[in-house]
């Protein structure tokens, strides 16, 4: 099982070398994300100057939720979202999948994780500082058991997001403009920085399934703050298992339809 860490280490090495070749890109992308982060904090301060809570969450809790969301989204962006995006744009249409499918490796993992995005790293460090700061502020609400469950829920959430986003990426097997689906999910993901409870009741089931933004921040943060219950935990595990099978089915059936591209 040392094979996959070795492959990933080499990919990271290559990506880092690539990013350093285009250093200005790195600088611009990193700076842009930090501006976005400051923008959110500014906005949330304006919102909380008019109200005491948002969907039952205090200002500090919302900022913690935001930092968890930004960390999870950053991890997704850094590790697999770009790979999925590239796949949905050219993997099937241009036959780029050919060069992966013949390799003795899980092709879906390779395409997903072959385009890491280290440009988010400075941003991640900044958010990690904010996250730790919020933990100090809210330490009265934190218990070791909650931290453990939240960590578990965080890993489950990342699994769910990987499987569901991968399933959306497999739409590329069926129509050429499938990258729009991932772009839409990316845009919608901004809404994960607010508690899921603020959204209408009828919409909430979708936020735990088709548009899985609840797992981007709300679920792990709820457990961290002791707001999560058994029902939420079982939903998380159930969605993880379901999304795994959906992804397997979507990938396998897509491959059967794959016709490569003319040479």
């Amino acid at each position: 099982m040392k094979k996959y860490p070795r492959i990933y280490f080499q990919i990271l090495r290559m990506t880092a070398a690539l990013m350093m070749t285009y250093r200005l890109n790195l600088l611009v992308q990193g700076s842009f994300m930090i501006v976005y982060l400051l923008g959110f904090l500014f906005l949330i301060n304006i919102v909380f100057s008019k109200t005491q809570s948002l969907g039952g969450w205090t200002r500090d809790e919302v900022i913690l939720l935001f930092s968890v969301y930004t960390l999870i989204w950053g991890i997704i962006e850094s590790f697999f979202f770009e790979g999925l995006r590239q796949f949905s744009i050219s993997g099937v249409k241009n036959g780029d999948l050919d060069k992966v499918l013949t390799k003795p490796v899980n092709a879906q993992l390779l395409i997903s994780f072959s385009t890491p995005n280290p440009a988010t790293t400075p941003h991640e460090v900044f958010v990690a500082v904010l996250f730790i700061h919020q933990l100090f502020i809210l330490h009265g609400q934190l218990y070791p058991a909650n931290v453990l469950v939240a960590t578990f829920a965080g890993f489950c959430s990342m699994g769910i997001l990987f499987f569901l986003y991968s399933s959306y990426a497999t739409l590329a097997f069926h129509f050429t403009n499938s990258s729009q689906a991932l772009r839409a999910l990316e845009t919608i993901s901004d809404n994960a920085q607010y508690p899921t409870k603020i959204y209408p009741q009828w919409l909430q089931p979708f936020l735990f399934s088709l548009i899985p933004i609840a797992f981007l921040g709300y679920v792990p943060t709820s457990f961290l703050l002791g707001r999560g219950d058994w029902k939420l935990l079982w939903i998380t595990i159930g969605v993880l298992i379901g999304s795994f099978f959906i992804n397997q089915f979507a990938w396998e059936s897509g491959l059967k339809k794959y016709s490569s591209a003319s040479s």
Partner: peptide, 8 residues
Amino acid sequence: LLNKAIYE
């Protein structure tokens, strides 16, 4: 080097 890792 990437292929070296992939093909072990």
